[in-house]
């Protein structure tokens, strides 16, 4: 209902918004891969700070992302705890040393294990802001054209873009249907028990699915009548020519990736070991 709460592209004018979508996608993919592979803390720290700083410059509002960020934090914490439970000694093995901080049998906490977990957590800080940044600052059509440019079939690219575009529409439809249901006595607030609320949700989902299917039907007819899919290739109206800035963005991504390779050599492996 409220525009601010919608997770999706919001047109704005910022440095990040202006970067070519293909350059942005390239940067996001390459830097994410770099962060996935390396465990060099210095590098991760740098990229994490850099991502958060970028996020700031895009003038995004916290409300837009608060839900998804909380959601991700919850699951990353869950993941970290699971990693610890499965093998509390993994850090010690990796860094070939063992400084016990808290002795508790199987669950003995070592400085090495904490350091390892901190590295894993840092990876989230590197990639999540970048991913959100990309989604929120790239309009779906440019997104589709950039996917197509990196070699993905244009039909799939367009399908992804359309799906992204309809998220706000579906959210609005959801609110409307939900309000109409509540007006007929379908209690969805916290006053009702969980079971009642779940049952009540079904009454919203059904019309939501049917109205969405109808929309999909109309749009696919409209697309076919205007020859979508008639040729092997298509051009993109929104495709922007590369500017100097865009080349810089690509170059920066490549530099960051090369840095990880250099660090690979320097550290004799993926891990930076401060315990030696």
């Amino acid at each position: 209902m409220n525009n601010q709460n919608i997770l999706g592209y919001q047109p704005q004018d910022s440095f990040i918004h202006r970067i070519n979508a293909s350059a942005k996608l390239f940067f996001f993919l390459v830097v994410s891969i770099a962060c996935m592979t390396t465990f060099d803390t210095r590098f991760l720290l740098f990229v994490a700070l850099f991502s958060v700083a970028l996020f700031k410059t895009a003038h995004l509002k916290w409300q837009q992302v608060s839900f998804i960020v909380k959601f991700i934090i919850f699951f990353s914490l869950l993941n970290l705890i699971a990693v610890f439970i499965f093998q509390p000694t993994y850090g010690a093995q990796l860094y070939h040393s063992k400084d016990v901080l808290l002795s508790a049998g199987y669950f003995t906490v070592t400085a090495q294990e904490l350091f390892y977990l901190a590295n894993v957590a840092l990876k989230y800080f590197c990639t999540v802001p970048l991913a959100l940044l990309f989604l929120l600052t790239t309009d779906p059509s440019s997104f589709a054209s950039s996917l197509n440019k990196i070699g993905i079939s244009y039909k799939i690219s367009y399908a992804v873009a359309l799906a992204l575009r309809y998220i706000p529409d579906i959210q609005t439809a959801y609110w409307n249907i939900s309000a109409a249901q509540q007006a007929r006595g379908n209690e969805l607030s916290k006053k009702a028990s969980l079971m009642t609320r779940l049952k009540g949700m079904v009454n919203i989902i059904v019309p939501l699915i049917f109205s969405s299917l109808e929309r999909i039907n109309t749009i696919s007819t409209a697309m076919q009548l205007r020859r979508f899919g008639s040729k092997k290739k298509r051009t993109w109206y929104t495709q922007q020519p590369f500017t100097k800035t865009d080349f810089c963005v690509v170059a920066l991504a490549i530099c960051l990736f090369l840095t990880t390779l250099y660090l690979f050599k320097l550290n004799h492996g993926r891990f930076y070991n401060p315990f030696n």
């Binding site: 109309t218 749009i219 205007r226 040729k231 290739k233 298509r234 929104t238």
Partner: peptide, 23 residues
């Protein structure tokens, strides 16, 4: 619901895009 493009310009160009007309 028949609008496909995100902006007016893009929507007008949709059929041309599919015909692979140059930008």
């Amino acid at each position: 619901s028949q609008f496909i493009g995100l902006t007016v310009a893009e929507d007008i160009a949709f059929a041309l895009e599919n015909d692979a007309v140059s930008r």
